[in-house]
Each structure stands twice: as C-alpha cells, then as structure tokens.
Design a binder for these strands. Structure first.
Lengths: 143, 143
DNA sequence: TTTCGTGCAAATGGTTTGCAGTGGC
DNA sequence: GCCACTGCAAACCATTTGCACGAAA
C-alpha cells in the first residue's frame, strides 16, 4: 500500500465524486490529476500554472471553485498558510510538522503519533482523519 | 503557575520588548492588553475592534504592524486560518486541535503530547516551542 | 533632536461572486 | 433539454506599503 500510483489516487478521488453525482469535466480532471501527481501540497496558483500548461483556457477562479468543491466533498484538504492556502488530496492519515520560518513542511506517519491522536481526541472530541494540518479535524458538531 | 493574570502576561510581554529596546506606545500597550486578556486567539479585526472601543484613532494597519512586530520579537504567534490570521501571546508550550468545519480550537497540554513532539523532532528536525498551530515550529535552517 | 512608531490612504494580491454561455448526462 | 459547471471580469477583503506627521527617549 506504500506504492500508490498517481492514477490510483485520481481514481480514488473520482470514486468519491461519482458517488456524490458530480459531473466529469475537463477542469476537474486536470486539477485532480495535478494534485494526484504531487507529493505534498500546492497553492491554487501552482495548480493553475500546471493546468494552464496544457489547457490555458482554464481560469483561476475555476481552480478555486474546484479545490473548494473537493474539500467540501472530503476528497481534498486545506493547509491554511499566510497569504495563500495549500491543497492536497486526502491520503492515509498523517500529521504535518511545519516550519513557521520558511514554510517547509514535513509529513509524519500517523502511526508514530497514535497515542497523541488518541489524547487529542479525548481532550477535544475531534475526529481526526486524513487532513492536512497537524491535528486538524472535524469536531462532533460538524461531523 | 496556572493562575497567571492578564497583567502578568502583559508584563511578561513587555519585559521581552524592553530587552529589545522597543518603545512604549499607546497602540502597542492596547494591543498587548487585549491579547493578554484573551483566552485563545484573535483576528486583527477583532483586536482592532476591541482597541478602537477605547481609542478609535488607532488604525487597523497599526494593529497589523504591531502583531507582526510581536511575532517577530517572539512575544506572540500566528495561527494561520483561511481568510484571516489569528494571533495570541506566547504561553507555555501547548498544541492546538482545530476543527476545519467551524474553526473552533482546543488547546492541549504539551505534556500529554511529549512523545509525539519528540517523534516529530526526530523525523523533521523541527525545534518545537510555544507556537500556536499544532506542531508548528522552527526548523534547523531557520532557528 | 533624532528616530521610531503611527495615521492615513492608496496599492496589492488571493479569493469570491454575478452572469451569460456551454458541455455533461 | 435541463442544469451543473465554466470563463470572464468585476467586486471583495485582509494585508502591505509610502509618506508625512507626531511622539518616545
């Protein structure tokens, strides 16, 4: 399971979207592919740049709407960052460690943090899943 | 040590600023007081609103410059959040658990997460301190 | 008096929105 | 054909910046 291709990730995303009755469109396909091919997270500008390389007609606002759509559907997650938001497809649960100096981020296997996650859940009632920012989750009222 | 008054917090902040040779001004005093009185974090707009209640002449841009100043000096920290940044005075090390649905945040005692913090340091080389966002720190290159 | 800090206002830049046209199903 | 989705452009909003004035030391 540690060798998941970018196609696998894209397919997994589409499976969720299909279940929700979302239409297959070029813009969505390209955005998902870009995210699926990326290790880590991308800003809207970065996603748009890669998408526009093959399809210049795709607008930035569409990329915005698409990534928000993916987040709403639980397919992707946001990594809030000053100045811009970073997006990534949801994968297996993991935790991020981020440097507030340079913004570099590291992914930590959740298995190493199992105890911490359990503690966090106990204290806050947060349901922790495959989210981007460390210990960000969805609380009881929002789940 | 669990009963630290808002004055205590403000005084502690000023001690650091004094050591850096920062001038005492009305705007800084008010912003620090607001942060010191607050449990949790505030947006620039919220800080400004509270400050303007007693001193309407204080400008929003000044609040921006002040909180950034405090962060630079290590007196406060930023909690990146979509749409706006949240600020808080630095306290004892703690970790946040945040709901990406409603934005509600919970503070978790770092003691409960000691093992996790150690793991994070080992994996990423991050030096973790009294920062706002969970597991945000300062990496070797930036320290 | 010399700087540092602030008020004010304009500029910036990421994100959102209204609307008309188009492509998915 | 219906309606979700997109392109385009304008609107928004938090944050930044330039500049001249005023206050701290």
């Amino acid at each position: 399971m540690e060798t998941m291709t970018s196609q696998d990730r894209a397919t997994r995303a589409w499976r969720i979207l299909d279940a929700a009755g979302a239409r297959h469109t070029m813009a969505r396909g390209l955005v998902i592919d870009v995210l699926a091919e990326t290790d880590g997270h991308l800003s809207v500008a970065a996603i748009h740049e890669k998408v526009a390389a093959s399809r210049p007609e795709v607008n930035v606002s569409t990329v915005h709407r698409t990534v928000n759509f993916l987040v709403e559907r639980g397919v992707a997650h946001v990594l809030p960052w000053p100045g811009e938001a970073l997006f990534g497809l949801n994968e297996s649960p993991h935790v991020h460690a981020i440097c507030e100096g340079c913004g570099r981020h590291f992914e930590l296997p959740a298995s190493d943090l199992g105890k911490a996650v359990a503690e966090a859940r106990r204290h806050s009632g947060l349901e922790l899943g495959a989210t981007g920012m460390a210990l960000i989750g969805r609380c009881q009222d929002c789940a």
